[in-house]
Amino acid sequence: MNADIANVISNGLVTGCIYALIGVGFVVVFRATGVVSFAQGAFMVLGALIFAGLARAGLGLAVGLPVMLVVMLVIGGVIYRLVFARIAGAEAFVASIATVGLGIVLEVIALLIWGPEVIAVPQLFNFRSRVHVVGELNFSALNLFVMGLTVVAFVVIVVGLNRTPVGLRMRAVANNPQLAAYSGVRVVRTSMIAWGIGGLTAGLAGVLYLLGSQPDPVTVYSLGLAAFPAILLGGLDSIPGSLVGGILIGLLQAAIGVFVGGEWQDVGAYCVLLAVLLLRPQGIFGSAEIGRL
């Protein structure tokens, strides 16, 4: 295996995992409340900044990461309760526009509190140590950490949705919120959990991105939008789709970066988005119904 391809695979998988995490939160929110969230990028910024603050205060990954996840879970839930409980459901389209406003507000709050500079975070990984896999392919400890956490997050979400009472209620709300309410499911509470998961996974994506690069908040925010091609490719309402779509777009962008040039990466992803819309609007795994949304 030559070095270029090895590079594509390792970079593509890592970027893909971050897209997948942004995407899975998006999908959970979309399924539970029908809202197309343009605010995932803002949740990433918040997660990254909160974690960076904790890390600078001396808390390592073992404490900082769980604390960040809990805080993001709460923020996501509270925002649903305050903003979207009133308008989601019957007016999903209006709610989707509202997420644009929400995204701007959250980003501005983050910028005003923490400033627009590159997010400072202490070095938590030794980038020199690499794990050799096969041929030229090797992964840094950070790469393995990113991929491992993504796998854990997906396993927890999939098992949680399919094997727990809360997950069953979330799927009921996703399928038909009105009927769920008449069946005794507390729709608002369940939707709050969905938004909490959306915030939590976006926050995790933000932290993982932060650890690998040295981004400023605005760059993190725009990555939230850059994940849309991946989300659409996988299917807006499919959880496995968000993983597959994320990885595919990640690999594609890495390949473009290596063989064509970095400036073509975003435009390449968006051309895929247009192609998906033309050829298979429900994505690889999405249900056909959402084509009519």
Partner: peptide, 14 residues
């Protein structure tokens, strides 16, 4: 009080 609605009375994906 439990309502069985006219349409969409079951969760199609469950």
């Amino acid at each position: 009080i439990v309502l069985v609605p006219e349409r969409n009375k079951v969760f199609s994906s469950l």
